[in-house]
């Protein structure tokens, strides 16, 4: 990159601004943690608003929650937890210096599960919400009890799950990059930071869903 920087031989993926690969790995890990803190605050604003309105309009929110189908939410929860496991296995495979085929296998399995989550969300939930007129401002003809409150609930439902789905898509993008990097032999037992920090991100997105699922689907004592 720069002829001023003559740091001698370094492992693959080493960036010139660091002293050694250890510093780079630390920096990457801390960076992702700080990013996740930001993400928590990002979702936090939404969760706070949701909680306040839920307290203000409890009955409407219960009514709104009943518009959702728990079995799809539950399926998706299972899918995501499974994808976290496969992600962890991919990292484990890299860490223990397994063949790249094995890493790619776990990564692709993670991607399939992630895609399945989005597929279920789109086909069985959002599409159905659309046909039933449950999308506020776009396609809305709910006129059951507590209509204004249900509308507000559905708003938050779409904002929160939508924001989460965007994070899933970004995660799938990251995984694609990781698969390509693995295929090009970028990783070894010594250097697998991108895998590790993408893993952190993936688990975080998973955890957000773990909070979303009960908040949105299970309130109001249905179960």
């Amino acid at each position: 990159m720069s002829d001023l920087a003559t740091h001698g031989a370094h492992p693959q993926g080493f960036a010139h601004q660091f002293e050694d690969i250890e510093q780079q790995r630390d920096a990457g890990r801390l960076g992702m943690w700080v990013f996740l803190v930001t993400e928590i605050l990002f979702f936090g604003g939404m969760f706070t608003s949701y909680t306040i309105y839920r307290a203000l309009h409890l009955e409407s929110f219960v009514q709104g929650s009943h518009q959702l189908i728990v079995k799809f939410g539950a399926t998706n929860t299972a899918v995501l937890i499974l994808s976290s496991l496969t992600m962890a296995l991919a990292i484990r495979a890299a860490q223990t210096g397994k063949k790249k085929g094995q890493i790619i296998f776990w990564l692709i399995l993670t991607m399939i599960l992630g895609a399945a989550f989005i597929g279920i969300k789109l086909r069985f939930e959002w599409y159905r919400d659309y046909t039933e007129g449950l999308i506020p401002g776009v396609h809305w003809f709910y006129n059951g009890p507590h209509a204004p409150g249900v509308k507000m609930f559905m708003c938050f439902y779409f904002f929160m799950t939508g924001l989460h789905a965007i994070h899933m898509v970004v995660g799938l993008g990251l995984l694609t990059v990781l698969v390509i990097m693995t295929a090009r032999n970028k990783f070894s037992a010594e250097y697998y930071s991108p895998l590790e920090i993408s893993g952190l991100y993936w688990h975080f997105v998973d955890i957000v869903w773990i909070f979303l699922f009960p908040l949105l689907y299970l309130i109001g004592g249905r179960y």
């Binding site: 700080v34 803190v37 930001t38 993400e39 605050l41 990002f42 979702f43 936090g44 604003g45 939404m46 608003s49 309105y53 506020p136 401002g137 776009v138 204004p148 509308k151 507000m152 708003c155 904002f159």
Partner: peptide, 25 residues
């Protein structure tokens, strides 16, 4: 920056949604 800015981001997002979709937040 890290702790505060995401909150204004989400706030402005809600405001934009409210303005475009009139959802009533």
């Amino acid at each position: 920056f890290v702790l505060g800015t995401p909150v204004i981001a989400i706030t402005l997002f809600l405001l934009g949604m409210e303005r475009i979709l009139h959802v009533g937040i």
